[in-house]
Nucleic acid binder design. Structure first.
Lengths: 297, 297
DNA sequence: ATTCCATAATACCTTAAAGGTATCAATAAT
DNA sequence: ATTATTGATACCTTTAAGGTATTATGGAAT
């Protein structure tokens, strides 16, 4: 038996007419008759009750049609699945990340990914949380490393880390951790439109410290913020995890151990996608990220 | 794509060796290589990573193997199912029934069955409930019309009728419905080993009438019992439903309307069998049986 | 490093079977 | 009774599956 037999049978069973079915199948009628007979012979079952004028399904034929339908549908599904898997192991893998992401962890993950999926090309996009959410929803990104909260039913997220805030000052700058002193300082931060949730978290943190920050300079990435601080344009409140990423910058980080405001870093991707590279990415990312965390502690 | 491709792929995927797979498939290696290439081309997916020394599944191949397995298994299941349906519409349909079954209903059902399934041969077996249960369990009967109770987890049963008992006497024989008179009579009945549950019901009935029957003659079918009664060898207690089956016998039936002991007639067959003829039989039997009942009422 | 073996790929031929054409036979409608 | 329709049959053509011989290449042994 071959798939052909099933497809031919399906056509005849649905049209109940050999000649019409033959037309639909783009073959002539005699071969079709023969194929059906072959099928019946192999099954040892009469599928059609037919004389030269009327064709009808036998009871067995009726059941077989149902089975054929599911089989053919299943096969199509399988083809699609395999194509999808193929795409996700040999096409492009688009990764989004916020600028505060540790680049060494990311680099290690990419190395592992390259070894496991040699055909897979990776594409990196540093972008804001909001932009990434949109891109993930539209399928323009496969995975994103972003800050919670994420309000999207389409995306699946898992937590990577909780990040408290720290004060960053240039070295040799005297500082005090009290509202009076902080109130007088010039602050550098993200643009509030660019990362509104992050911005609110930051304001919440300041509020608990008892002041409202005067933000004089805004940047759209972490590295720039820290460079501005280093060059004494002001000070900043940033997530503590960035501390280890820029050891060459002449900065002093001071954590607020008593203020429990933190931003959550999550890994997000579309729901219900079977994507081996993505799975592997998640696995690797977690292991490398945790290694980093361990080193910090 | 043809089924061949799937079977060939499965062989190579399981052995991870083209030459060995070719031997297993009873073909030579080059055509196998070609078929696999065709499959890969049609899917647009590389299924094996192979050099001249090593063959291994790609990620996509691994998934496709799973899909192939289910598809092939599913196909086998479908073939079996269709054969089973074919058997049950063109083979033999073996019907068991107890001797008190109305034959006209049965005849009408067989007529309907013949019209619907012209290829189906029916085989009738008049047998005791206990013999039928054994035969049904062993697959030697497709359906049985028997008396409850049935203690078998393998069988599915559904109720057809509740049958009360009636006294049968020859015409012109004076009779009284009291214990004193009944106690003095000679009774004819089934062999107690032959239909023990029926026998117990009958004793229960007599007990409520206040006597214990002296059974002088035993038969193994209803018709014989009634003939014996007609020929004045004794009287009998029988289910009322037999009354209409032998109008030509010179008998008087008297129902005990106040004694609520009845035997249940059920239709029994093996559980979980997909059997169109059986389904139709049940449907028809119910309709004809109920028609009979209606006529009685 | 060289040789040898194992094994998949390639080229080309053979054969089986799928598909086509012409025709027949049977049935239902007129 | 006649005709049109339609599945079956017979026979031919073409496609593609399968086979044989050979090559190329990667890994193992020397």
């Amino acid at each position: 038996m071959e798939l052909r037999h099933l497809l031919y049978f399906k056509a005849v069973a649905e049209l109940l007419h050999f000649s019409k079915a033959a037309v639909q199948l783009h073959i002539s009628q005699p071969p079709l008759t023969r194929q059906i007979k072959e099928l019946e012979k192999e099954l040892g079952v009469l599928l059609f009750r037919r004389n030269n004028k009327r064709v009808e399904l036998t009871e067995a034929g009726t059941y077989f049609l149902k089975e054929c339908d599911t089989l053919i549908r299943q096969l199509e599904r399988s083809k699609q699945l395999v194509k999808q898997i193929h795409e996700s192991t040999s096409g492009e893998f688009k990764i989004g990340y916020i600028s505060s992401t540790p680049k060494t962890a990311l680099a290690n993950v990419l190395k592992a990914l390259r070894q496991r999926y040699p055909l897979l090309k990776t594409r990196l996009y540093e972008a804001s949380t909001s932009k990434q959410i949109k891109a993930l929803e539209e399928g323009k990104l496969d995975v994103g490393i972003i800050r919670a909260p994420i309000h999207s039913v389409q995306l699946h997220i898992e937590s990577l880390d909780l990040d408290k805030f720290a004060l960053v000052c240039p070295v040799n700058m005297p500082y005090e951790l009290n509202a009076a002193w902080l109130k007088e300082q010039t602050f550098i931060s993200y643009n509030s439109n660019y990362a509104p949730d992050y911005h609110n978290k930051l304001l919440d943190c300041c509020n608990r410290l008892g002041f409202y920050p005067e933000i004089m300079h805004e940047c759209n990435n972490m590295h720039s913020i820290l460079c501005m601080v280093e060059n004494e344009l002001g000070i900043a409140l940033v997530p503590v995890s960035v501390k280890d990423q820029y050891p060459y910058l002449k900065l002093v980080f001071t954590e607020f151990s008593n203020i429990h405001v933190s931003t959550e870093i999550v890994l997000a991707h579309h729901q219900h996608t079977i994507h081996p590279a993505l799975n592997y990415f998640k696995q690797m990312y977690n292991s490398f990220y945790n290694k980093n965390i361990d080193r910090l502690v």
